[in-house]
Structure formats: structure tokens, C-alpha cells
Design a protein around this nucleic acid. Sequence first.
DNA 1: GTTGAGCGTT
Length: 298
Amino acid sequence: MSELYIRVAEDENEEPMEIPSEDDGTVLLSSVAAQFPGACGLRYRNPESQCMRGVRLVEGVLHAPENDWGNLVYVVNYPKDNKRKMDEIDAASAVKVKRGFQKTSDLIVLGLPWKTTEQDLKDYFSTFGEVIMVQVKRDAKTGNSKGFGFVRFTDYETQTKVIAQRHMIDGRWCDCKLPNSKACPDEPMRSRKIFVGRCTEDMTTDDLRQYFMQYGEVTDVFIPKPFRAFAFVTFADDQVAQALCGEDLIIKGVSVHISNAEPKHNNIHQLFPNFPGGSASLAAMFDRSQYQFPSSHV
DNA sequence: GTTGAGCGTT
């Protein structure tokens, strides 16, 4: 068989690219992957059955169906994760890389000695890294310290290090934490949290944790009670959560749908306009809760 | 002039 090219495209409707075959008429997967990074195989639409068919792949070598590639357009297969998902992961990493850092925030310093001044704080915390701001909170009338303050660093790494340990300041052990005003899980948690729709009542938090562990570290599983046929799973890594969005997964034989968990404070009343007991009780119920809904429900 | 596991006058 002489020099031959087969036509390969990412999608049936996209413009194909010609990929060279080998002397024996086969096509190397590596040739395909050279043009379509991440490709793991080819498929094509069988003209007779109109069904998609896989191209035989043996040890990196793609074999022509019926020993003839013909004039068909072959479509690239990507591993399990489809192409779109890989793009999303790449995009997510790119954003992270591009950002290159995480924003710092004020840290509350708890347990300060009454005598500790802002200068003391600045001197102490500067040993960890560049300090942007320090405050000691004082009673407005007396000027006495309230025993706590705030500090902000330039670098997120410094902040992480400072939070991780206790601090001996002027003879007392002090803690640095994210203040409550910043610790609300809205923004940072959103992208790590998925909404698991179509749950059945026999799915326990353990079931979900066990199942989702295969994708990455699970930091939280929340199943509303009473049973409402959905759950939330939070991963340590937001990329894992994002990669699962849009998927239909089989858990305990049931197809569940994964979507983004939306932040709280959404339009509950649009979801349940005629909730028994009136909208006030509904609002109270949800305001106390951790419930979050995907945008597709709103 | 006191206190101690706390959350920020602007």
C-alpha cells in the first residue's frame, strides 16, 4: 500500500485533518495524537448501520476497517474524560497558574496580652514575612486593648504559615485565624462543591463519600434531612468538582446528575411558590440551612 | 487599676 492519508476530525461536523498512514496501511495512534493531543483512539460512522464504530487498536497501531480506510472521516476518541472536560481542567489550571498567587486576607489575632501594641505586633509578625497592616482593637473610651487584633501579610504563603501555628507574643500564646467575616464558605467553597441531583433515600453520606473518593479527596458530604433527593459533596480540589459537573454518574445503581452548587441566597420562592405554611416559614427554614441549588433549578 | 477562647467605631 502506498502513501496514504486518512481524514480525521475532532467532531463529525468539523473540518478533517489528513493523517499519514504507515507502509502497511495502518495508522499509528501517535500520528493521530500528534495532531490531536490526548487522543486514545478513532471511531467512525458505519455507512450501513449509521452507528458509530470503533477502529481496531492494537498496541498503538490503528487498523483500517475491512482493510481499507476508504473515504470516511474518522473521529478522535479521548480518554474517559471527554475533550470538553479536559479543556475545562486545562483552563482551570491556567487560571490558577496565571493568577500565580492567592489573595491574602486580614487575620484575627486572638489572645493578645493587654499591653501588646501595634508596633509589637508588627515586629513579631515581620519575622514571618512582609506585613501590610496590623491593628490592636481598643476600647474607644479607655483605650485599653480588647485583647485581639488583626494582621495582614503580603504573601499568601506567609498567611498560611502563620495560621498553622500558635504564637508566643509578649508572654502569651496567641492564635491567628481567618476572621468570621471572611470564613464564610460562600466564595471559596462554591467551586469545590457539587450538587448531586436525583439521589435516592438509601444513599448515605458514607455511600457518597466512598463513591466520590475515587475522584479526589472529599472534605464534606451533606444530605438534607428530611429526604429531598439531592446532596452536596465538597472536594478538597475545585478542579475535581468542576470536572464532574454535567456528568451523570451511577451510584448504587441509580443515575445521579452532577452540577455546580450555587451559593446560598437564591430564589427559593421561585422554586416553591406555594410552600405550605407560607413563604416566611420557608425562608426561615432555608436561611438556617446549608442548602444550595444549581442554577438549572432556579 | 478588673478580664481571656473572644471577631473589626471610623
